[in-house]
Design a protein around this nucleic acid. Structure first.
Length: 507
RNA sequence: CGGGGUGUAGCACAGCUUGGUAGUGCGCCUGUUUUGGGAACAGGAGGUCGUCAGUUCGAAUCUGGCCACCCCGACCA
């Protein structure tokens, strides 16, 4: 019997993290590159993850008073022009629609029927939603207006990577309008917290919540709040953002209403997360055997693999599998019935087992003839080694499954948190700072760095200089008082600084 | 947009220097034996060699144009 390699994914994370990432995406059958550069085909296993993310977040959006709606894919260029900073921020990555028909010329279809005004395919929808809000809001009694949209957007990226940065991606964008600045700020903070809670409790990804500096702010926003995660190459990834837009967009789009004391402009917010969450999830938890999924978002939480050495075993073993599947499905985990799949495909047991390992299914159960005799099953957890098989009495599987799933969920979070803490340091000098962010091997940089908590009082130019020198940026000004720490001296400018910020390399 | 590289079966690649009619591994199909951790054997299907032109009796192989993709940089919520 030929043995496969020790680990399912080559190269390992240590050897080549970006390549490992791509191999995990492929091995787990999440998505593939399409014939259109920068666009991806999201396959059922990847889309199942997105559906779970959607389902759970959507519930929270509704719980906090929002309603879903849908706005057009095409946005008149003149709309983008209305907000100066905004157009500047997105101009370089817009796909532009200029024609509305094709004509056959020399056997080729060529665009014809030029539009009088070109459209951009939405890179985000502040402007077109703003125009709708302007129509909908007449009086302070129409406020607050709390809208969310699930949609695709397009940003023409130079260097695409599946889930992390693609030209087209799926996301959710919330857009709200309020009577006062205070209400809008409360909304911004509330959704920021929703994201923080979702990443922590559902994706088991610990995040640092905080505010962006001017250099990293959303084009057109007064304040941008972010949740930043650390993934296993110790880089930061922005997992969700919530923006306080002030009156910038309401003035641009004329969201004006009859207030309690005369005409006023509304205060707006916007907030979003995207399919990037899937890339974040992957890089936070997966190992050298492939994807590792937190039970709360796994498309299938338990897989049952029948082991049938002889044809005559099939009937009783399949029956036992189906019975167990039914019993497990009758249990509920966080209010949803447990998702179970029985893999009856006619393939070698080992092959099937490894497929599910690579897909990251939290719990794998094998049932064979010997188990039928003893009334047990063989159980493995994806957060442990692939050979750590436990033989569990049948009845205990059913009674214990909820606790097992929760234990995996908790373990993943604890593990990720520990990883982040191990690679978060307070730094007091530029020498130390440079050393922290400089790989020892310049030709083939090893995994290095992490989160650096430093006192900072620099401006946009100072951040740009550091980005140029070390490829690091301020990820956020942490909300958490403990991380923020006490006042001190800016590590770069020497000016007094109110507290610490987080520097890191980022996606 | 600059610098480098690669296009050969579903995937990964060899063959090219020295032109002679298409190969290997994985995957796929059929059969037999297998099956408690990535099975073995036998047989089989699958390719206008990125594209257009040139050289030649003959081009995957040599020459030129074009196209696509990848890496590095620039850019990037």
């Amino acid at each position: 019997m030929a043995k496969g390699p020790k680990n399912a994914i080559q190269p390992s994370r240590e050897e080549n993290f970006p390549e490992w990432y791509q191999q995990v995406v492929r091995a787990a059958d999440l998505a593939e590159n399409s014939e259109v550069r920068g666009c991806m085909v999201i396959k059922p296993w990847g889309y199942g993850l997105w559906e779970n993310i959607q389902k759970q977040l959507d519930k929270w959006f509704k719980d906090t008073g929002h309603k879903n709606a849908y706005f057009p894919l095409l946005i008149p260029v003149s709309y983008l022009e209305k907000e100066a900073t905004h157009v500047e921020g997105f101009a370089t990555e817009c796909a532009v629609v200029t024609h509305h028909r094709l004509e056959l010329k020399d056997g080729k279809m060529v665009p014809s029927g030029e539009l009088t005004e070109p459209y951009v395919i939405r890179p985000t929808s502040e402007t077109i939603i703003g125009a709708a809000f302007a129509r909908w809001v007449q009086s302070y009694r129409d406020l607050p207006l709390l809208i969310n949209q699930w949609a695709n957007v397009m940003r023409w990226e130079m260097r695409p990577r599946l889930f992390l940065r693609t030209a087209e991606f799926l996301w959710q964008e919330g857009h709200t309008a309020h009577e006062t600045a205070e209400e809008a700020m409360v909304e911004t903070a509330r959704m920021h917290e929703v994201y923080e809670r979702f990443l922590t409790d559902h994706l088991a990804v610990p995040v640092i919540a905080g505010e962006k500096t001017e250099a990293e702010r959303f084009p057109g926003a007064l304040n941008t709040f972010t949740v930043e995660a650390m993934v296993q190459d110790r880089k930061a990834i922005q997992a969700g953002t919530s923006h306080f837009l002030g009156q910038n967009f309401s003035k641009a789009a004329n969201i004006e209403f009859e207030g309690r004391d005369g005409r006023e402009f509304a205060w707006t917010t916007s907030w979003g997360v995207s399919t990037r969450l899937i890339g974040t999830l992957l890089m936070a938890h997966s190992d050298d055997d492939g994807l590792v999924l937190p039970p709360r978002v796994a498309p299938t939480q338990v897989v049952i693999v029948p082991v049938t050495p002889k044809p005559e075993h099939e009937e009783p073993v399949f029956e036992a599998c189906d019975t167990l599947a039914r019993d497990l499905r009758s249990k509920s985990f966080h209010g949803e019935s447990i998702t179970v799949e029985v893999d009856r495909r006619d393939l070698g047991g080992g092959t099937k087992a490894w497929e599910w390992i690579k897909k990251g299914v939290p719990v794998r159960i094998e049932i064979g003839p010997r188990d039928l005799e003893k009334g047990t099953v063989a159980m493995t957890r994806r957060d442990r080694g692939p050979k750590e098989k436990e033989f569990v009495p049948n009845a205990d599987v059913v009674t214990g499954i909820v606790a097992t799933l929760q234990s995996i969920q908790d373990n993943l979070l604890a593990r990720a948190l520990q990883f982040r803490e191990e690679h978060t340091v307070e730094i007091e000098s530029m020498d130390e700072f440079r050393k922290f962010f400089t790989p020892e091997n310049a030709d083939k940089p090893e995994i290095h760095g992490g989160f650096a908590l430093v006192h900072w009082a620099g401006g946009v130019e100072d951040e740009e200089a550091l980005q140029k020198e070390l490829k690091v940026t301020v990820r956020c000004i942490p909300k958490d008082a403990e991380l923020r720490g006490s006042s001190g001296t800016c590590i770069y400018t020497g000016k007094p600084a109110e507290g610490r910020v987080i520097f890191a390399k980022s996606y």
